[in-house]
Amino acid sequence: MNLFRLAGDMSHLFSIVLILLKIYTSKSCAGLSMKTQELYTLVFVTRYLDLFYSYVSLYNTVMKLIFLASSFGILWYMRYHKQVKQTYDREQDTFRHYILVVPCAVLALIVNNELSVTEVLWTFSIYLEAVAILPQLVLLQRTKNVDNLTGQYIFFLGAYRALYILNWIYRYWTEPKYRQYLVWAAGLVQTGLYADFFYYYLKSWQAGEKLRLP
């Protein structure tokens, strides 16, 4: 495992820690999209089914379990915690799941490495992860009040993807057999979705202000 990959994973993990910290300390999930959290949970469940049939390393297994547990934990807080659930922006978070889930499922059935249940589900998770941030970005645009932690959460989630691209470039040169075109294409799309957000985030940061969206 190279440093880019490790830094990417840590950035991903850190983004999740931030969101849990925000919810736990402020007992609020204001500004967070439950739709995005549900989509990420679906991504983890469909991708990490391989926990049952393949083993790569202890590191991978532990990280997979952490991602699964934390995504269910976040959802539990947003849905069932007495105080937290009252802070959820239900009226603003109106993005429909099927708008993303259905096209990803269809695409996974058409473009995949192998037409088997596990492989199609895995491919679906790759496509869905690429676009799962959209409800969160829409919510951000709508509410405009972005607190620091939500901004940082999205920043680290974007950083995770950018670092993975560096990891792929590194692996392209160092591992001739490693060619995951499908993953790379989805990863590029996913990182692209953050471009706009990054621009405003860095601008606000430079100006030493809170993140403001136009």
């Binding site: 990959r5 391989d50 990280m63 997979k64 490495n113 192998e114 060619r179 993953v183």
Partner: peptide
């Protein structure tokens, strides 16, 4: 063979 690619990333 693409399907035999090891899925070693998260």
């Amino acid at each position: 063979e693409p399907s035999k690619l090891e899925k070693d990333e998260l």
